[in-house]
Simulated assay, not measured.
Amino acid sequence: MSDLSKLIGERLRIARKEKGLSQEELGSYSDLHPTYIGQLERGEKNITLETLDKILSSLGIELNEFFSFSFLDEDLVIYQIVNRLKKLSNNDLQLILKMLGNH
């Protein structure tokens, strides 16, 4: 899936957890299967605007609020860093560790 699907999925996961809901509870509230919620959160499925609206309504979040999240949001920054690190070679990772002072 695309980086956008993964980013939206991660944002959904963060929003769900902030509300203290399990995937099963969110699925029940939004009339969606919990497995589908998990697939969306992992970025395995593309989400339609209608489905996103349904989920966000269940979370009590406005569509514009959801998309106004800052890329400086700590969880999203960590997510982006980890995804980029996963794509690097072992040599590149060693170089980064060296630059960070962790020989």
Results as ranks from 00 to 15, higher is better:
M1C: 05
M1A: 08
D3E: 09
L4E: 05
S5L: 06
S5A: 10
K6N: 09
K6L: 06
K6E: 11
K6S: 06
K6Q: 10
L7W: 06
I8Y: 09
G9C: 09
G9N: 08
E10W: 04
L12I: 03
L12E: 09
R13Q: 15
R16H: 08
R16Y: 09
R16L: 10
K17S: 11
E18V: 07
E18N: 13
K19R: 15
G20D: 07
L21H: 03
L21V: 05
E24R: 11
E25I: 11
E25Q: 15
E25R: 14
G27P: 01
Y29R: 15
S30H: 04
D31W: 02
D31S: 09
H33C: 11
H33I: 06
P34I: 06
T35W: 08
Y36N: 14
Y36A: 08
I37C: 03
G38C: 14
G38R: 13
Q39A: 12
Q39P: 06
L40D: 04
L40C: 05
E41F: 00
R42H: 01
R42Q: 00
G43I: 00
E44R: 08
K45Y: 07
N46K: 10
N46E: 12
N46R: 09
T48Q: 04
L49C: 00
E50P: 00
E50Q: 04
L52T: 03
L52M: 12
L52D: 05
D53M: 01
D53K: 03
K54C: 04
K54N: 12
I55Y: 11
L56P: 01
S57H: 10
S57M: 10
S58E: 02
L59M: 07
L59I: 05
G60K: 08
G60Q: 06
G60E: 06
I61D: 12
I61E: 09
I61C: 10
I61K: 06
E62Y: 06
E62Q: 14
L63H: 08
E65D: 13
E65H: 09
F67E: 02
F67S: 02
S68V: 12
F69V: 15
S70D: 12
S70N: 12
S70W: 05
S70P: 04
F71H: 12
F71V: 15
D73P: 03
E74D: 13
D75S: 13
D75N: 14
L76I: 15
I78N: 11
Y79C: 03
Y79H: 15
I81H: 11
V82R: 15
N83R: 14
N83A: 04
R84H: 11
K86S: 06
K87R: 14
L88R: 15
N90L: 07
N90E: 10
D92Q: 07
D92M: 03
L93F: 01
L93N: 02
L93W: 00
L95Q: 10
L95W: 02
I96C: 03
I96A: 00
I96Q: 04
L97A: 14
L97T: 11
K98P: 00
K98I: 00
H103G: 04
H103F: 10
H103M: 07
